[in-house]
Amino acid sequence: MSRTILYARVSTEDQNSSHQLAQAEAAGFTFDKVVVDHGVSGVSVPLAERPEGKRLFDMLHRGDVLVVRWVDRLGRNYQDVTDVIRHFMREGVVIKTVINKLTFDGATTDPMQAAVRDALIAFMAATAQAQAEATKEAQKAGIAAAKSDQAKYRGRKPSFDRDQLSAVQQMLADDAGASQIAKATGLTRQTVLRIRDDVAGAEAALARWQREDA
């Protein structure tokens, strides 16, 4: 009997994966099991080396569906993401994303459909790595701002966490509207607009609080 499994990942121990589950359920998914990695980098730690993610390789079987918020939950490295998706497709597992509603299925025998699918996989994996690199640069700018004299006052604690900020940045890159992003991430539309208008400032706000709460 086929199963539907959600895999969620958050980058720090203090982040909460519940909004990834809520976002998936709002998109119409129901799950037989939820697998979560906490405090794991998608850039430096491949899925097969994560405490929980590595279980997916034994857990998933032909006919099962693996749901992720977006391909960056599987990884933020081009080679790792493409290898993982192709591995699961060879095993007969269907991968679906909540954002963009993509489906990667290895069952197709039509060469044109397969070519389009493989090109999309490559594009999404490249986008995940590019987004990770852009986020890293924004984080550097935010940390620099947090360390400046003007940043001695922390201000109000951000209403978003690292995972939500990454999701907003990803959806903005995909040209999603503020209302759509707000619904998907659980943030207010005003918060999404503030992030859109000042990504470095959002990064700085997180950096200030994380630095002093550490």
Rank of each mutant, 00 (worst) to 15 (best):
L56M: 01
D32R: 00
E49P: 06
V43T: 13
F31K: 02
L60R: 00
G39L: 08
G28N: 10
H61G: 15
A22Y: 09
D58M: 14
T30I: 10
D37S: 07
D32S: 00
T30W: 03
D58H: 14
K33M: 10
G42K: 15
F29P: 02
R62A: 11
A27F: 04
K33S: 02
G42E: 14
H61Y: 05
G28R: 12
T30F: 09
L47Y: 08
V45N: 11
R55S: 10
S41T: 06
V34F: 14
E49H: 12
M59E: 10
D64A: 11
K33Y: 05
H38S: 14
L47P: 01
V65K: 01
F29L: 06
G42D: 12
R50C: 02
G39D: 06
V34E: 05
V36M: 13
Q23R: 12
H61W: 07
L66E: 07
V45Y: 04
F29Y: 14
G63F: 09
R55C: 04
K54G: 09
A48M: 14
K33A: 07
L56Q: 03
E25D: 02
L21T: 07
V65I: 04
H38E: 13
G63I: 05
F57V: 11
D37Q: 09
V36S: 11
V40W: 01
E52G: 05
G28E: 08
G53L: 13
S44R: 08
R55Y: 02
V67Q: 04
V65Q: 00
D64E: 08
G42H: 13
L56D: 00
K54H: 14
G28S: 14
R50N: 09
A48N: 13
V35Q: 06
R55E: 14
P46S: 11
E25A: 04
F29Q: 01
E25F: 02
G42T: 12
H38D: 14
A22I: 03
L66R: 12
R62S: 10
F31G: 01
E49M: 13
A48P: 03
S44P: 00
V40M: 06
V45Q: 11
V35N: 03
D32N: 00
G39Q: 04
L21M: 07
L21H: 03
L56I: 04
V40Y: 01
A24C: 07
A26W: 00
D58F: 12
P51C: 01
R50M: 07
D32M: 00
S41M: 06
D64C: 09
A48K: 15
H61E: 11
V35K: 05
V40Q: 09
A24Q: 12
R62P: 03
V40A: 09
G63K: 09
D58L: 13
V36C: 05
A22W: 12
E25V: 06
A26D: 07
E52T: 07
E25L: 06
H38F: 12
E52S: 10
F57Q: 08
D64F: 15
D32I: 00
H61S: 14
S44W: 03
V40E: 06
S44N: 08
T30S: 14
F31Y: 09
T30R: 15
Q23T: 07
M59Q: 08
L56W: 05
P46A: 09
K54R: 15
F57K: 06
L66N: 07
G28A: 08
V35S: 01
E49V: 12
K33H: 11
L60V: 00
P51M: 01
L47S: 05
G42W: 15
P46R: 12
E25H: 03
Q23H: 13
